[in-house]
Write a protein that binds this DNA or RNA. Structure first.
Lengths: 105, 105
DNA sequence: CTACCCTATGTAGTATTCTTTATATGTAGT
DNA sequence: ACTACATATAAAGAATACTACATAGGGTAG
């Protein structure tokens, strides 16, 4: 190891949450309790730094379910490295290896 | 319940760490992985807001153990209320609590 | 049809947190 | 003597997080 990007405790928490299957902003907000003013700017920074990749869902799917379209995120290779690094750095983050969200597929 | 003070996720983490028995700055740094530039200003704010109370240890004790004196913190009543409130607000916080530190007594 | 709630994302401005550096004191190595 | 490590705390400036508010479509209550 490792010259992976250094990230904050909160960013580590968000990456962990995404890895656990909570893959869009609103869902991450609910599961972490962090406010939208934390989550959305953080997601944009993570995407800018290539730690996550975001894609808009097909608006037709959202429309059929009577809700706004979501932006779905996934960890990149660099994101996984940065998370591994964060778990080493912040000992308490390891306790969150959670409760995978049931994937409906 | 209760109009306890609203605190940030990180402050909640620090309060929880103190409650678990890690009661001075350096110890909190080690168990959380958070840097000194986070911990010490946060402790001062928490003390200013009466969520924790800090007391310098007797410098003779520190001298005998060949180290600088520590400032020991404990939660106040308001601090306990604020923490209870934070645990409700941030669902993941409870999982981030460190193991209780063994008290040597 | 007006008001309000729910999902979902986003922004402005302020408060907090992070990086880096510094202080003081002691121990150990070269 | 100089360098490095370890325990503790702290400050300054840059980066990040939080509060409060905004936007927008759809549903529901009156």
């Amino acid at each position: 190891m490792e010259t992976a990007v250094r990230i904050s405790h909160t960013s580590g928490l968000i990456l962990q949450t995404i890895r656990s299957g909570y893959i869009y902003g609103f869902d991450i907000m609910e599961v972490t309790g962090l406010p939208s003013g934390t989550i959305y700017p953080a997601l944009r920074r993570l995407e800018k730094d290539s730690l996550v990749r975001g894609d808009w869902e097909d608006s037709k799917i959202a429309f059929r379910q009577d809700r706004p379209p979501r932006r779905y995120y996934k960890l990149t290779r660099q994101g996984k490295d940065a998370l591994a690094c964060a778990v080493e750095r912040y000992p308490l983050l390891a306790k969150l290896a959670p409760e995978e969200k049931a994937t409906r597929r």
